[in-house]
Design a protein around this nucleic acid. Structure first.
Lengths: 260, 260
DNA sequence: CGCATATTTGAAGAGTTTCAAGCACAGTGG
DNA sequence: CCACTGTGCTTGAAACTCTTCAAATATGCG
């Protein structure tokens, strides 16, 4: 019998039903675990373990070697780079089901930090790399995932390169909206006035958007006055007019779901 | 006998020595062609052909389907996105030996355009995808390449997100320096006062750096006054002090080669 | 309740963009 | 050979957005 601490659940299982640990995993059907064949999935379950990190803790620093990879189960992990003089830029936010890690390389050039309380499911990197190289279909899924991420990063680059503060914040709100609806929500189920919660604090939002907490504050207040959103509390917002928000973001990709 | 128009060389070869077309390719040892096994390399040679595009011409527009992939042989290809109101951001510049294309997906979200006169070696996308899926080692190389590109894109994101105009231009100059030395130049061969040429016009540099041609002009003049570089002509610069330039860029990755 | 932390609000300042004009160079035609 | 025109780059001045610094307010927790 083995005991697994899986967040708020402690699961006791015996060796030949190792996969049951993953059956209770809230995101297992949205990660590579779902794409792996039965043998590979079993192997993944075998080498995986859960780690919990509290908000603000560094998981890996820049230049560190990253000896594990994994999936975010809950919370948000930030990927960032800090310049010598202290300026920092977040180059990626990893949400539940996102893959984290720097595979096939001994050092990462970015720091991984818990942007909120976080639960991650980790595998030993070397073991995972071997698994990948022995399973072309997993490698293929990984390639697709990285290609998607590359495109998303480029989209964000457009935001940083030529969009203003208002557009950046509108885009961030829409991104959160998307991610919160993402769990296979059919179009007709879209709530007319969805509610969004910031999963991370202002400072991190600012570092992600390449702006300051003051600018974010002012823009949010201004959107509230313009009746685009309603401030429920400092971190919760009701989007009164998702279509106008999308228009404001000026990014076609995010205009799709809601009419103006 | 078949005749291949390969830029300034026209190569005549017979079917069973198809690879010789690639032997004369100035970049073939820096692309995936070099990593492919003999059979795969022969197949690549078989399905490849050369295209020349003159500066300013669009190769593929956004939302277009991209039915080919390939390598840049000479010149610079720009990858960009344009917002409805005309603002544009370049999200990547592809130099000789860089891979171009949007594999395993029917539509690209970015436009490809020749930023200078360009020569590219293209393969049919579907054929290439089949080749990749049948050759795990090519798929692996491709994965590594995409991972490297993802990191490079994230580095550039730091630039756009939190660095000022001066740092951006210094970084761009250093990037050009790197690329021009990249052909396996050993450290002791570094010229003390290297010369750099802008391969693309000011407008495209501005679109890449998220700034304007005026700002670039002012910064270059100011660097010239500060004796960091010497303006040979509008597009050619002698870097008087590469170390100070690197310091100015404030990006550790680019500080390595030259002492301050 | 009081302290620490996080967010909002205000006013001044810096850096960049914008608009407008000037300059330099290449190609064309008289 | 020289004006003419077009294009691309530089320079100047004004305008604007965002940041910075400072203070006020709100929120959370022992």
């Amino acid at each position: 019998m083995a005991e697994f601490d899986f967040g708020d659940r402690v699961v006791q299982i015996n060796q030949n039903s190792l996969q049951s640990k993953c059956d209770t995993c809230p995101i297992h059907n949205r990660t590579m675990c779902a794409f792996a064949g039965e043998d590979a999935a079993r192997e993944l379950a075998m080498i995986s373990r859960t780690r919990r990190i509290s908000a603000g803790q560094t998981i890996v620093t820049e230049q560190d070697s990253l000896d594990f990879v994994g999936n975010v189960v809950s919370g948000v992990v930030k990927l960032s780079k800090t310049l010598e003089d202290g300026r920092q830029q977040i180059v990626g936010l990893l949400f539940p089901s996102d893959f984290m890690g720097h595979i096939f390389s001994d050092h990462t050039r970015f720091a991984y930090e818990a942007a909120s309380d976080v639960e991650i499911c980790v595998f030993d990197r070397k073991a995972f790399e071997t698994l990948v190289q022995n399973n072309p279909e997993i490698q293929h899924e990984l390639l697709l995932k990285v290609l998607t991420e590359l495109d998303a990063t480029r989209e964000w680059m457009v935001l940083l390169g030529c969009q203003n503060a208002r557009e950046r914040i509108a885009s961030f709100l829409l991104m959160l909206l998307r991610r919160s609806l993402q769990t296979g929500c059919p179009k007709e189920d879209l709530p007319p006035n969805p509610t969004i919660r910031f999963p991370i604090n202002r400072k991190n939002i600012a570092l992600f958007l390449g702006t300051t907490i003051e600018t974010i504050s002012r823009q949010i207040q201004s959107m509230s006055k313009a009746r685009i959103l309603k401030i429920i509390d400092g971190n919760t917002f009701e989007i009164i007019n998702p279509g106008r928000l999308a228009k404001m973001a000026n990014h076609e990709e995010w205009l799709e779901d809601y009419p103006v």
